[in-house]
Design a protein around this nucleic acid. Structure first.
Lengths: 153, 153
DNA sequence: AAACCTTTCATACCAAAGTATGAATTTTGG
DNA sequence: CCAAAATTCATACTTTGGTATGAAAGGTTT
């Protein structure tokens, strides 16, 4: 890598000297400093691009694969009372609330049924009642509304 | 990408014009064409390196690394860019992200289709791809995971 | 030009979600 | 104790969601 820097530096120097050697000729011929600037800019832009590619090539890129570990429900001091009041105001029972939480974790009715040791029928009944009480038509909307109401986290 | 070329082109033009405006002053003061050449070379070399890095794809050696995402994310001054980076890291396209957001608002596939003026088939295709990329099986789980990853609000 | 990605759409089929209805327990509050 | 609410479950049915597959159009990259 250091060798490359050295080589590149020498090349730049050579190029610069060469250009400066021919610059007077150009100036004498037609005073075209604009042309000279353009040529200089072009050459060094290209050189720069080349250098940039040289220096950044074959760079190892570590792509991190994100894996989310489902966190345990966060236990704060007293959010329970707030939730409780709102829950009761909405007429949602404790069991329904439990199901609502599991629903918000992305579980299917079958998974909820398994976790609570009840049948899928039971879960469906509860979810339907939850939808009525939250005035929504789908579980996704129920979760959104419950979150917006701060009923769930 | 085309936009980047345009912006780069404009910048080069501006730089060139600026340099040409000051060139006469420099020449009058001390005839230091050498200095002028050096500055020009340096500026355009740097510009070239920058352009080269911008415009070339790194040939990358992909090393997958498992990282457990922390619930509390990286807070920077521009959370939009974080979202963008994460979105691209997950390989989720802009359109898919759009649909993911609408999904998180509790909308059905039909409603999303209506909002985006596309067919339900299209929405289904997108959602399926989203589920693959988020490694989930249901929309509720997709929303939960996207929230946990701070991909969406 | 060829390869590739994104977006779009369709069709068909299977799985899950949601509705409606009715009913049997258990719990709870007056 | 008794009525009301809560929890449980089933069956049948409709709707929505999700998978698989193939395909076409437009833009980008090589």
């Amino acid at each position: 890598m250091i060798k490359r820097f050295a080589i590149y530096g020498i090349l730049v120097a050579v190029a610069a000297i060469s250009l400066q050697l021919i610059q007077y000729k150009l100036l004498i011929i037609n005073h075209s400093i604009e042309l000279y600037s353009g040529v200089l800019a072009l050459i060094f832009t290209i050189t720069g691009i080349y250098a940039g590619q040289r220096l950044t090539r074959k760079k190892e890129v570590v792509i991190e694969k994100l894996v989310y570990a489902t966190p345990e429900p966060i236990m704060t001091s007293f959010p329970i009372e707030v939730d409780e009041q709102l829950r009761e105001k909405l007429g949602i029972s404790k069991r329904e609330f439990e199901i609502l939480e599991l629903m918000s974790h992305g579980h299917s009715n079958q998974e909820i049924a398994d976790k609570l040791f009840v049948s899928v029928s039971t879960v469906k009944t509860h979810t339907s009642n939850i939808f009525l009480k939250l005035d929504v038509k789908r579980r996704t909307a129920a979760v959104k509304k419950a979150q917006d109401l701060n009923l769930i986290a």
